[in-house]
Design a protein around this nucleic acid. Structure first.
Lengths: 345, 345
DNA sequence: TATAAATATGAAATCGGTTGCACAAAAATA
DNA sequence: TATTTTTGTGCAACCGATTTCATATTTATA
């Protein structure tokens, strides 16, 4: 690689036109107090010389940044990549770019990511915490320093500041209620790690739905862990080999639900006639398998995050009241829970 | 939002210790000519004052950057999000961060992304072109300016510079040969837009495999377009309603292949006994459906990109010879092409 | 016409680090 | 002990833009 030649600066433009760099800067930034002729001339010359702004210098001097930092567990998760797709698309329209860090579900890397993004003087931060995250000190520092921060989906509830979350409780409640209405009563729950808010809320929604329909909650029907297809299969094998097995499964993950479906069929059960199955997240394959699931509106999530964050950034002087925006997920009923043949799908 | 208080600078540390900012800078950067005591003292004080480097200032002065720019069509595509997951993970270990822009398959946005990333003085660029991209001027400028650039997967072959690509030709050749070995001869190809290198290469691999096995190529069996599930279904309806329909489908997309499988079954065909189906990309659902597909080793791709790019960056003075690295995808045979019952899966 | 206000520009400071150069002090060598 | 080399430090310039302030010029108002 050749060493990069130095680029054109506003000083080069200034020299070419025999004016000062200040005037060039003002012309390029559409400053009100600039002669329209000078402005046009400068802009023409800039184009001719193939000038390109040095954002780094600009940022240093002005203190303004149009970069938003993102910290998420992993990019290779359908939901996250969809949300980020949406965040980027929405921010781009407003002139912002995204600097992405992955925590890889690791608290140390998450902390390092915060530091990196702060060093880069991002205009704002978007965070979805790792599974390991318990300590919120770092996040609170960021907020204390006045840098707009939004938590989404997986959040630390104790932390002040903006949050955009899914109504996991409500969605779980709705799903389980729907399953009960379909005639399933003994419903198992593949729950995931309950110390993370989203799984906890789903669990609570499940529990509440049972209660509200007069069904006794039974601890042994709740299995922590169980997010992958393999775990789903394993748990199912264990749970359904006894004669008093459950009639339905509400899983906190589509993958686990899928694993369950596959294993159930292998074990000779019919889904949905014998056993009903419902997943969570509406992964693309759920449609293909006729698996009832819950759509989380990732694009709406991204849009809301972008909008809320930009509000905080652009009204930086107004102290903004921490708010939590809740998005209502949507139950997508499909064949896997359709016990009552004549009910709508 | 409160206006951010100004942070601690090296000048604050200097003042505290009654030394010069230069010494502070050198201490923090482990410069060889610094007294070990001063160094430790400075580092301790920095920690105590909660100092955090201003990367922007550092970058401006030093001209060094540890940010890599990425331009990809869309983040919400399994393959891309997986590759980027891997790129980020590998770059992070070497102290680099990623600034991501999506082209959204739009040439104008792609060009704008180049500009943004150049303005941000990224240390290097990773690009996978949009479907619309034909003009390579922008990319050539970047290379001419001496900024390390790597194209991956979807590339403009005419452009000099490093590339990391998948052997689409070889994989397609292998897949089609395998299908022929399974006893399918009349094989249709759902090809996608042939002006993009990856689809063209798959098409050529398909064609060549036919030829090498003495099967006549028939233009009417190649359908351009056909990347989505819906398109797959549509094309299948059309193609398989006639009595002289094909015996197998080699699709350039798993989604199209899936659509085909679903429709074929609806039409009363048995897969694989009547019709064999093969997709491309080994999306997660292919395993679940027993759909034969081709794995593209996204994590290997990401790792190779990171490694190659860092080599270019860190040997910036050595003119590097443009190279193309080819990754061999792997055929994953599953039930959907298993016509010969006794053959290995 | 005299004065006030608005417009347009340049000089210089600034953002927060990094780095070349000069130089003093310490260490190594003669 | 005299001389050279090595260490360690500070000063000041610098990266490339933005922005304050002063000033000259033009336009609007009294």
């Amino acid at each position: 690689m050749k060493k990069g030649k130095k680029g054109i600066t506003i000083h080069d433009i200034a020299k070419t036109l025999n004016i000062s760099a200040s005037t060039v800067s003002r012309s390029l930034n559409d400053h009100p107090n600039t002669n329209i002729h000078t402005k046009k001339l400068v802009q023409k010359t800039a184009k001719k010389l193939n000038y390109n702004l040095n954002s780094i210098a600009s940022r240093l001097r002005s203190g303004r940044s149009n970069t938003i930092g993102l910290i998420i567990p992993r990019l290779d998760r359908e939901y996250f990549s969809n949300v980020i797709y949406s965040i980027e698309t929405n921010l781009y329209q407003r002139g912002y770019n995204i600097l992405i860090c992955q925590s890889n579900e690791n608290f140390e890397k998450e902390k390092a990511s915060f530091q990196t993004l702060l060093r880069n003087k991002v205009a704002g931060l978007v965070v979805s915490i790792s599974k390991e995250t318990i300590d919120s000190k770092f996040m609170e520092n960021v907020i204390a320093e006045g840098i707009p921060l939004i938590q989404f989906d997986r959040v630390l509830k104790g932390v002040k500041g903006n949050k955009v979350i899914n109504d996991n409780f409500g969605a779980a409640y709705q799903a389980v209620s729907y399953m009960i209405a379909q005639g399933y009563t003994k419903i198992a729950h593949y729950a995931g790690p309950l110390h993370i808010n989203i799984f906890e809320d789903r669990f609570l929604g499940y529990k509440r739905a049972l209660k509200d329909h007069g069904i006794a909650f039974r601890k042994e029907l709740v299995i922590q862990q169980g997010l992958s297809k393999d775990e789903g299969e394993l748990i199912t094998s264990r749970l359904f080999c006894k004669p008093d097995h459950p009639e339905a499964i509400f899983a906190s993950s589509d993958y686990a639900a899928l694993g369950a479906m596959i294993r159930l069929r292998e074990m000779g059960f019919s889904v949905p006639a014998d056993i009903g199955v419902c997943g969570y997240a509406n992964e693309p394959f759920t449609e293909l398998f006729g698996l009832t699931s819950i759509d989380q509106y990732s694009s709406e999530m991204g849009k809301t995050i972008a909008k809320t964050l930009l509000e905080s950034i652009e009204e930086k002087d107004v102290p903004d009241i921490p708010k939590t925006i809740t998005i209502e997920p949507k139950l997508i009923p499909r064949k896997s829970t359709q016990r009552q043949v004549n009910s709508a799908v």
